[in-house]
């Protein structure tokens, strides 16, 4: 066991294992100082470094070599050194650069949030609220693509894609036979399958979970509902292919969709198989564990469990009844 190294991010010191990235060190501290990450995904090896939203300033390299780094660095791919001092939200330079990156990400994004299934849980949406400007300076035609169905369960809408490459890494690592990747170059590059070949793999549905925007969407959930009208409930089942631990999204009595359990950084705890995701959408398929904790700041938590007409699933589950009461009280207080 090697010794832990000390790193200071925005004035907060934390001790982490050597080799940890700045981003992960910041996540251990938590709160506002965590740089946003659109392309980095801790479960996907090799991801990160591409979107440049997690840029931070290293004002002191390390105890041994205190020189600051000359350029802003991608915190997701830069390892910490002992005594490193990092500035994230305390540095105007970083905020300015991040604004620039968000603007770049948005110039070719259709901003069709009102009709996008991802709205409400979209990282780009969060990012543009935090760092974007209200008006675009881009006065040219935006890049558009036709929608492509990758198999009968997943739809690829390249127009919304920010080319984070996460789905490519999923295809590389979760599935054993990769059939999609990046074609083209520069702003003409696109995620695509080889001649629209269907992705045929038990775990292909995970590309939907890792997509930070609405480029890869669940066709079984498409246009069914807004995410903030649905109730997330943790559940599990005995699944032969995956761990079977998922989040069910209820609307009324119906399970509208099934996803992996996403943490506060939008990363799933475990990848789930396509059977769990697409095929088992009845309450009777699942053992309910309790309500999924959603950050209070999220638009999803604005929808409380209805007290007047509780769902069947809530009426029969003591944990959910309890959670429902608490949430109802909190909501009525507000």
């Amino acid at each position: 066991m090697s010794e832990k190294v000390k790193v200071t991010i925005d004035g907060i010191t934390v001790e982490v294992e050597p080799g940890t990235s700045i981003l992960n060190a910041a996540r251990q501290i938590g709160g506002d100082i965590v740089p946003p990450a659109m392309c980095y995904y801790s479960k996907l090896e090799g991801s990160g470094g591409k979107c440049r939203t997690c840029l931070v300033k290293v004002s002191k390299g390390s105890e041994k070599d205190p020189r600051p780094m000359p350029k802003l660095v991608a915190s997701c791919r830069t390892g910490v050194m002992d005594g490193m001092e990092v500035e994230n939200i305390t540095s105007p330079e970083v905020i300015e650069a991040r604004k620039g990156v968000v603007e770049m990400l948005l110039i070719n994004h259709p901003l069709d949030c009102p009709i996008c299934d991802q709205a409400g849980e979209c990282h780009l949406q969060d990012l543009s609220y935090e760092h974007g400007v209200e008006k675009t300076r881009y006065e040219f035609e935006r890049r558009t693509f036709d929608k492509i169905d990758i198999g009968d369960k997943i739809q690829l809408h390249m127009t919304r894609c920010i080319l984070c490459y996460r789905c490519v890494y999923v295809a590389d690592q979760i599935t054993n036979n990769r059939v999609h990747g990046v074609l083209g170059r520069g702003d003409a590059s696109e995620i695509s399958t080889y001649i629209e070949k269907a992705i045929d793999n038990d775990f292909s549905g995970n590309v939907i979970d890792v997509c930070p925007v609405g480029a890869l969407t669940d066709r079984t959930f498409r246009f069914k509902n807004r995410v903030w009208f649905t109730k997330p409930v943790d559940a599990h089942r005995d699944c032969p292919t995956c761990k079977g631990e998922v989040t069910l999204w209820y609307k009324g009595e119906e399970v509208l969709r099934v996803t992996g359990r996403k943490d506060q950084f939008g990363e799933v705890a475990d990848f789930i198989c396509n059977t769990c995701r697409f095929e088992t959408k009845k309450t009777s398929d699942w053992v309910i564990e309790g309500p999924r904790h959603i950050a209070k700041t999220s638009v999803i938590s604005s929808n409380h469990y209805e007290m007047a007409k509780p769902l069947d699933v809530i009426k029969h589950n003591p944990i959910l009844i309890e959670a429902n009461k608490e949430e109802f009280e909190r909501a009525t207080k507000i």
Partner: peptide
């Protein structure tokens, strides 16, 4: 086309 600022 790998990183956003240059691509866009």
């Amino acid at each position: 086309g790998q990183c956003s600022p240059c691509r866009e």
